[in-house]
């Protein structure tokens, strides 16, 4: 491994670029400077914290610690999904649905990749399990958030159309069918774009990282393909699950549209 270690000075030089960006945005009165600085500080603190945690974690192989960190990551991802909804479901559903769909698809696929494909021993070896799960969650999070947001906002806007279809004797699945299809599609667009553009427009982040740290590019590519397939499948399945269960929850047992199960717009 021929990694050039970065010193504090190196990182400070990188910080100059962010600071100049902030200064220019102050000059241009973009009112972004605060956000840029706070986000940059968060990046530094959060990443160093996770770096320390990972370092500790990688030095042992207790399942309980891997499990706890995974659960923590899932909780944060669930909160992010909820925060990005304009009209979220009321009560436990608001947090629960996104979190459950990510849990089902991300965890299943990560475990599948670890056991069947990579074959780590033990399967929860933290050096593989945590980054893999992190990438799965990070991307399914976006997909689920987009799909659920599309579902709830469109259902709200088109409630009269949905009811018009119910009135004519369509079942709830058909009456909201166009909207659910559209929601899943919207949730999957980022990943389909990423797959289509991979290598041509951008070098995916994980692959770039591996190459920078000295891995043979072809090895890095193999991992990247694995990751992209897993992420796309995970995003697709969780978007489908969240959309379908969410759509069903918009109707009651008499197939009446129940939009009061959504919160007011935030």
């Amino acid at each position: 491994m021929n990694v050039i270690s970065l010193s504090v000075v190196d990182l400070s030089m990188a910080a100059i670029s962010i600071i100049s960006l902030a200064i220019i945005s102050v000059i241009l009165k973009l009112e972004l400077a605060n956000q840029i600085i706070i986000a940059a500080i968060r990046t530094v603190v959060q990443l160093f914290l996770i770096g320390l945690i990972l370092k500790t974690l990688f030095s042992q192989t207790e399942f309980i610690w891997v499990g706890l960190l995974s659960a923590f990551m899932l909780m944060i991802a669930g909160r992010e999904v909820m925060a990005r909804q304009h009209r979220r479901f009321r009560g436990l559903w608001g947090y629960g649905l996104g979190t459950l769909s990510m849990f089902i698809s991300s965890f299943t696929l990560t475990v599948y990749a670890l056991i069947v494909i990579i074959g780590t021993d033990p399967w929860y070896t933290p050096q593989y399990a945590i980054p893999l799960l992190g990438m799965m969650l990070g991307n399914t999070m976006t997909g689920v958030a987009l799909a659920m947001d599309k579902l709830t906002t469109t259902a709200w806007q088109q409630r009269a159309v949905i009811e018009a279809r119910l009135i004519l004797g369509q079942d709830w699945r058909t009456a909201i069918g166009d909207i659910t299809r559209d929601s899943v599609r919207v949730g999957m667009i980022p990943m389909i774009n990423a797959m289509a553009a991979a290598g041509l427009v951008s070098l995916p982040g994980m692959m770039t990282g591996q190459i920078l740290s000295g891995t043979d590019p072809v090895e890095a590519v193999k991992y990247q393909i694995l990751i992209m397939f897993m992420i796309t499948a995970g995003t697709g399945f969780s978007a489908m699950f969240a959309t379908w269960v969410g759509a069903k929850h918009l109707f009651d047992d008499r197939q009446r549209l129940r939009l009061e199960r959504l919160n007011a717009k935030t």
């Binding site: 009269a160 009811e163 018009a164 279809r165 119910l166 009135i167 004519l168 079942d171 008499r254 197939q255």
Partner: peptide, 23 residues
């Protein structure tokens, strides 16, 4: 009404809302 599947009920009970909607 409660004994009849909702889809069937709404086909029998033809409701024309004041405003028409199309999909």
């Amino acid at each position: 009404c409660s004994d009849i599947p909702p889809v069937q009920w709404r086909k029998w009970v033809g409701f024309l809302p004041a405003e028409s909607h199309w999909w």
